[in-house]
């Protein structure tokens, strides 16, 4: 019945808590479904707001910034609508969503008490984190793609398939614009890795899912606030959210990728640090939940 390693028959460490098993455990959660559902609903809500709000225009002054500029042209086509929806979501909503998926995953198991049973199976700790992280990241990516895809779909159905209108760089033909939208989505995904890493680190450190999610969001907000303080000068470059909007470079003509490259370096470094730290913590900690 038992193997040379002393394990029960049929047990292999590499077969425990597979990706699909973890996916099934998480997919049926109401939290997951509600969040993904909201990703579909949000573009519709934004669309409804544009429809009912009328076209006041608002006499775009320069002070209102890029946000207003993009809002003014959001209804000029499906691509613009998708871009606008992504813009309004990326700074906060998507941060919360990613923090939810990655911050809740281990901490909720700890709070339910099921974590110790998984570890007693035994699921190797590294593997448990691996499966959980992959499922969390996949859920986050699905949320991001659902949001962008739905926005593109409803925007195109309502406003038509037109070239992407930008504030400064003129029009970008639909084909290349679709590529750029994909690039922007990809960049947003990379920057969200920082949130994911931080939330995951907090998730393995606490038994309170809310603490992990809230902590990650809070630190993001703190970073954004500090980034507003220009007196900090060059120190701001080190803030994880400093390059959060570097994707605007993809709306230039020709494409400006310098800041995106720096942003990607920053995001990857931070997320590697956070994920590595999370692994270190979890592999060395005493599980007392």
């Amino acid at each position: 019945m038992s193997l040379p390693s002393g394990a029960a028959g049929g047990y292999r460490p590499g077969a425990t808590l597979s990706f699909t098993t973890e996916l099934r455990r998480q997919a049926s959660r109401r939290r997951t479904r509600l969040t993904l559902g909201f990703m579909v609903a949000l573009p519709l809500i934004v669309l409804a707001a544009f429809e009912f709000g009328g076209r006041s225009g608002g006499g775009g002054g320069g002070d209102r910034g890029q946000f207003a500029a993009l809002a003014d042209i959001a209804t000029s086509g499906g691509l613009n609508f998708a871009l606008f929806t992504l813009l309004v979501s990326s700074s906060f909503l998507l941060v919360v969503v990613v923090a939810l998926f990655c911050g809740d995953t281990v901490a909720s198991e700890a709070s339910w008490g099921s974590l110790r049973y998984l570890l007693a199976i035994p699921v190797p700790r590294g593997r448990l984190l691996g499966s959980k992280l992959l499922v969390s990241l996949l859920s986050s990516l699905v949320a991001l793609l659902l949001l962008t895809g739905t926005a593109l779909l409803v925007g195109t159905l309502r406003y038509g398939w037109h070239p992407l209108v930008t504030t400064v760089a003129g029009e970008i033909a639909s084909g290349p614009a679709l590529l750029r939208l994909a690039g922007i989505t990809g960049y947003v995904a990379v920057t969200l890795l920082v949130t994911a890493g931080l939330a995951f680190l907090l998730s393995v450190s606490t038994d309170a899912p809310l603490g992990a999610v809230g902590g990650a969001v809070l630190l993001q907000i703190l970073s954004s606030i500090l980034d507003q303080i220009t007196a900090l000068g060059q120190l701001r470059v080190a803030l994880p959210t400093h390059y959060a909007e570097a994707w605007l470079g993809l709306l230039s003509n020709p494409v400006q990728t310098d800041d995106m490259v720096k942003g990607a370096i920053s995001a990857l470094s931070y997320s590697a640090l956070f994920f590595g730290w999370a692994w270190y913590r979890f592999l060395s900690k005493d599980v007392v939940s």
Binding site: L3, G6, A7
Partner: peptide
């Protein structure tokens, strides 16, 4: 932690966790 032999062990510790 994670010793394979633990697979021959069934446990209920500190209440249920589901």
């Amino acid at each position: 932690p994670g010793a394979p032999v633990l697979s021959r062990l069934g446990a209920l510790v500190e209440g249920p966790g589901f």
